[in-house]
């Protein structure tokens, strides 16, 4: 599984001049969210356990891990929107 994005870089340019240049350090956010992720994964494991006992195939844990993997794959996404006077650039690194 790839690392989730570590930085969000955002830049707003107005009439050729940079008005906003924002670097959001997501790598500080992930440790804060880690306990919630672990709790969610524990919850899915328990639910899958009960489902297994009920004769169903467990899938929620795999789904949760897949969602985390999807988050990791967002690295490298870039979006640029431009009109006559403004440019907004957004990057996930």
């Amino acid at each position: 599984m790839k690392m989730p994005p570590l930085l969000v870089a955002m830049r707003i340019v107005e009439r050729g001049q940079t008005k906003v240049r924002l670097w959001l350090p997501l790598f500080l956010l992930w440790p804060i969210l880690l306990p919630f992720v672990i709790l969610t994964l524990l919850g899915t494991v328990i639910v899958d356990g009960f489902r297994f006992l009920a004769g169903h195939k467990g899938a929620y844990t795999r789904l949760a891990v897949g969602v985390l993997g999807l988050l990791g794959e967002t690295r490298g996404t870039e979006i640029f929107v431009e009109d006559k006077d403004h440019t907004v650039a957004f990057r996930l690194r």
Binding site: L63, G69, E73, T77, I79, F80, V81, E82, K84
Partner: peptide
């Protein structure tokens, strides 16, 4: 002059499609 450029990693697309099987 309203221009949009979007660059999406194909691995994201692949992971998203694989997620549907889960």
């Amino acid at each position: 002059g309203d221009n949009v450029n979007v660059k999406i990693p194909l691995r994201l697309l692949r992971a998203g499609l694989k997620l549907t099987s889960l």
